[in-house]
Every structure is written in structure tokens, then in C-alpha cells.
Nucleic acid binder design. Structure first.
Length: 233
DNA sequence: GCGACAG
DNA sequence: ATCTTGTCGC
């Protein structure tokens, strides 16, 4: 049976209330506009947990769409401060991601995150939080749905369906390959849904996930293997 | 009141 | 996210 999910520990309720307010502020700062020409340098970002579960380990891989090569790879880490709570992923993972991004030297034009952007109850998924915080173009590419409703996309690669919240189009559901679970794409910051979907398609190389995110995921996995907690000062 | 619930 | 081998389907 897989029907049970650990309820949210009541001790986090005060923080969640504060987080909700901060999410509304960040969502209000989002700039939605076309991102043209389509970016050449794309920074893919992803996070993993250390073997002992005490650290969030992040990886950012800058991918050059023209040469289809990785031009830079950086890592970041931060102690786990909060549990995973649906709707508040950004507060758990952004510290490690920000630690990694501060080391990036390449002039990437957009950041791609593993998770939601506007496709969130308060329009503030991790891609919005990171995009607004870093003030860079950003989009979210999730592997499953957090929020919103949609029709099932056709089974062929390329099929897309809008993701809705009432009358609002908050994202797109894209079948990146034949008969695989679709991807949930949404705006993070300084980009619009059309260009976000185009970019994901332009970054696909035959795998379900677009290259930037796929490489970052693989890099975060590598990083965790050789991980050793920092020396106390 | 009963589910649903990114990573 | 993470635990985990073989196995069903194209």
C-alpha cells in the first residue's frame, strides 16, 4: 500500500506561514516576456542528498546548445535545514543551489531547474524563487505534477497540452519522447511559456529530460559519491 | 471531511 | 530525493 504520506510536522507551521508570504512577494516580482533569440548557453541545475541525508548537494552544468558540449561544471552544498514539504521545495534546496551558482563564471543566458516555476499554488516554484533571487532568466522543468489540471498529451514525442489553474495557463505538459511520462514546463523569470517550451525542445537529445537538467542530475549524483562533509573551522 | 502533494 | 533486480514492452 502506498496511500500513506507522513503528515507535515506541526513545528513547521509558523515557518510555512512566513514562507507563504515570501512566495507571494517573489511571485509578484516575476517578469514574463519572450526570451529571444533562444539562448545558446543554458545552465542546468539540480540537487541531491548526501548519503547521510545531512546535506543538500547541488550541481550546475552550463551547456552550449551550438556545440552541444558542457562548458562549465560547478558544485554547491548546504546543510539540510527543513524537511521536504510539497509547495516549499525552494526553501529546502535553494541554499545549495545558490552556493553553486555563485561559482559560475560562464555568461549563461537562462537557468533550467528541476521542478516547477509558475506551476505552483502561489506561482512560486523553485524556478521562480531562484530566477528572482539571482535576477536571471529561468524556467522550471518538472518530472511530475505538483499543481494544475491538464488533458493527457498525445503519446507521440512533441505533443503538448496547457497546464491550467482555473482560467490561468500556468504551464505546459510536454511529451518529450514517445510514450514516456510528460514533462511539466513553466515560467521561472524573464521568459514566457512559449520560449520555455521551445528551449526544452531545442535542448533535447533523445532522452526524456533536456540536456542541461539531465547533465546536472548526473553531475549531482557524481558529486554525492565523492562527498565528504567540510572540516569544522 | 477526503484526497493531493515538485524533489 | 532515496531504497533497489529483474523484467515487461517496444
Amino acid at each position: 500500500m502506498a496511500w500513506s504520506r507522513p503528515p507535515v510536522d506541526p513545528q513547521w507551521q509558523p515557518l510555512m506561514q512566513e514562507w507563504r508570504a515570501r512566495q507571494l512577494e517573489m511571485a509578484a516580482r516575476v517578469v514574463e516576456r519572450p526570451l529571444r533569440p533562444l539562448p545558446r548557453l543554458v545552465a542546468g541545475a539540480d540537487a541531491a542528498l548526501s548519503p547521510d541525508k545531512d546535506w543538500v548537494l547541488a550541481a550546475v552544468v552550463v551547456f552550449d546548445r551550438e556545440t552541444r558540449t558542457v562548458v562549465e561544471t560547478v558544485h554547491g552544498a548546504a546543510k539540510v535545514e527543513y524537511p521536504y514539504i510539497p509547495g516549499y521545495l525552494g526553501f529546502r534546496e535553494s541554499p545549495a543551489l545558490l552556493d553553486a551558482f555563485r561559482k559560475v563564471r560562464s555568461p549563461f543566458e537562462v537557468a533550467m531547474f528541476d521542478g516547477m516555476g509558475k506551476a505552483h499554488p502561489r506561482r512560486c516554484g523553485i524556478a521562480v524563487q531562484m530566477g528572482v533571487t539571482l535576477d536571471v532568466p529561468a524556467i522550471g522543468v518538472g518530472k511530475s505534477r505538483l499543481f494544475g489540471t491538464h488533458r493527457e498529451p498525445g503519446l507521440e514525442a512533441g505533443a503538448v497540452e496547457p497546464l491550467w489553474d482555473r482560467q490561468d495557463r500556468i504551464g505546459a505538459v510536454l511529451r518529450s519522447k514517445d510514450k514516456v511520462k510528460p514533462l511539466y514546463i513553466s515560467v521561472g523569470h524573464k521568459a514566457d511559456l512559449e520560449t520555455a517550451v521551445e528551449l526544452v525542445r531545442a535542448c533535447g537529445l533523445g532522452y526524456r529530460l533536456p540536456e542541461p537538467t539531465r547533465l546536472a542530475d548526473r553531475e549531482a549524483a557524481r558529486f554525492k559519491i565523492g562527498w565528504a562533509a567540510p572540516e569544522p573551522a
